[in-house]
Every structure is written in C-alpha cells, then in structure tokens.
C-alpha cells in the first residue's frame, strides 16, 4: 500500500485534485461570491433578501420535481425488478434499450414531445380520426411532468437495476420459505435491500427535475415558470449574474439538504450508489 505522504501518492492524486479545484470548487466559489456581491462588486445581502418574491416559484419547482421523481420511482421499480430477473442476455438488451434515448440530444427529445402533444400533433390527429378532440395537452402542467418523467426515467432505472441485479436470490427465497407472501417479501426484503438504489435514483431524478428550465419552457409554453427558468432569465436576459447566482446558491443548498435527508434514511444499505 502506498503511504499517503509518499511523493508517488501525491503525484498520482494531484491531477484529480487539480480537476476538482478547477471545475468543482472554483465554480462553487464564484456562485457564492456573486451571490453576496452587487453589480459594483461590493459585499451585499441584497440578492439573498430579494429572493422572497420567488418563494412561490421555488415551491412550484420543488412540488413538480417531487411529482416527477415519484412517478419515475413507481414506473422504474417494477421495471428494474423485472429486468433484473431475466437472463443475462435479456438484461443487457433491456439496459441498452433504457439507455438508448439518452444517446439522443435532450433538446431533440423535448421537441419531439411538442410535436406529439400539440393540438395538430400525433395524438390529437389520431383522436380526430375517431371523432374526438382536439385536447389541449401541450402547455399544461401534465406536459411538463411528462417531460421530466420521460427525460429522467433512465436515471431512476439504472441505479435501481444495478442494486437489484446484485440482490441475492437465496435471500428472497429465504423470505418466501419463512412464510412471506409476495407482498410481504416485497415490503420486508426487496424494498429495504433496494434502498441504496432508491435513494440514488431519487437524487438523480429530483435534482435535474427541480432545476430544469428547458422542459417547462417548451412543454409548459412559458405559462409555467420554474426556478430554472428564473435563473436562466437572470443570466441570459437580465444579465443580473448576482441575483441568478443567489437563486442558484439557495437551490443548491435545498438540494444538498434533501440529499442529506435521503442519505440518512438509506444508511442501512450502505449509502447512495451513483
């Protein structure tokens, strides 16, 4: 084993250290710095104090993020379990299929949903053929949640699948053997043992959902302001980096708190697997 003080150890570690400083610590530092300074560069709490009026937007974002995350969990849990029980070859194929949409550009995927959902889109034109509709689907709350669920579902499936595929089959058999029916085995063994995967899936879906701006713009039609949209406008249109940074900082803190919360409740399984 290499001693932590040896020159070799330092040489091996330094690129990663440099990377972390440049691309993780420095940006965070700038976010914090901008949050507490005005446009003139002087220290101020103005930005933070101005956040009060965005409270409804924060609440809306968190609420929609949570909804999308829970929907992902309910869709992904049975699917991941099903995948983990198939043969090794089928598992590989299914996982590849789950990841396939991720290879396509995020913007293109969201645009496709616009053309599917709009009043003259795929669904409505099919419904029109049987004399129904058109229904307004685009620019609704449902469309935004659909967009989040669709885009972030793989981030729920993959950690769940990776934990479930390592579940010891004999432990599940032991639970059946001891008298557990399907529901009891699920509740008392499979879910608790999948907690690390559930926790990391929740984090990996919740974080991008809560901070997204593109989905709400395209599928929510601007009627639907999420906190990501506000941040984007501050940087792109208002050029108020300081306020944008302050909102980002608060969002970051909120996300950190929710992750810490999750970690605390999934500790029995050995922490979050990403």
């Amino acid at each position: 084993m290499i001693k932590k003080t040896s020159p070799g150890y330092k040489a091996v570690v330094s690129p990663y250290l440099l990377w972390s400083i440049l691309f993780v610590i420095a940006p965070m530092f700038f976010v914090a710095y901008y949050s507490f300074t005005g446009s003139d560069g002087a220290w101020t709490l103005e930005n933070i104090l101005a956040l009060g009026k965005y409270t409804p937007t924060f609440v809306r974002s968190i609420w929609h993020g949570l909804l999308a995350t829970l929907i992902c969990l309910f869709l992904a849990f049975p699917l991941s379990y099903f995948i983990s029980k198939t043969s090794a070859n089928t598992q590989r194929t299914m996982v590849a299929l789950v990841m396939l949409p991720m290879w396509m550009n995020f913007l293109i995927r969201t645009y496709s949903w616009m053309t599917i959902l709009q009043d003259t889109g795929l669904i409505n034109s099919m419904l029109a053929k049987v004399g129904l509709g058109p229904f307004q689907m685009l620019n609704t709350r449902g469309a935004v949640i659909l967009g989040m669920t669709y885009n972030f579902l793989p981030y729920m499936i993959l950690p769940l699948y990776s934990v479930m595929s390592k579940l010891d089959q004999s432990v599940i058999e032991a639970a059946q053997d001891l008298g557990g029916n399907r529901y009891q085995v699920l509740r008392r063994v499979i879910i608790p043992l999948s907690m690390p995967g559930i926790a990391s899936g929740l984090t990996m879906v919740f974080v991008p959902s809560v901070s997204t701006f593109y989905i709400s713009q395209k599928l929510g039609g601007g009627s639907f302001d999420l906190i990501g949209d506000v941040i984007e406008r501050q940087f792109q249109q208002a050029y108020n980096y300081n306020l944008g940074a302050a909102i980002s900082l608060v969002l970051m803190v909120l996300i950190l708190i929710s992750m810490a919360f999750l970690n605390k409740y999934s500790d029995s399984g050995g922490g979050v697997v990403v």
Binding site: S170, V171, D177, N181, P192, L193
Partner: peptide, 20 residues
Amino acid sequence: LPPHKRKVNTIFQRYALFPH
C-alpha cells in the same frame, strides 16, 4: 403449493440471512 404455504423450512447453503 407456493413455498410460503409449506410447513417446511430451509437452511440455505450460504445462510441467506437478511443483511438489513
């Protein structure tokens, strides 16, 4: 008859204790 309805119990090769 499914395993949970049988009046037999098994000791598994590698114990299969519940790790949680």
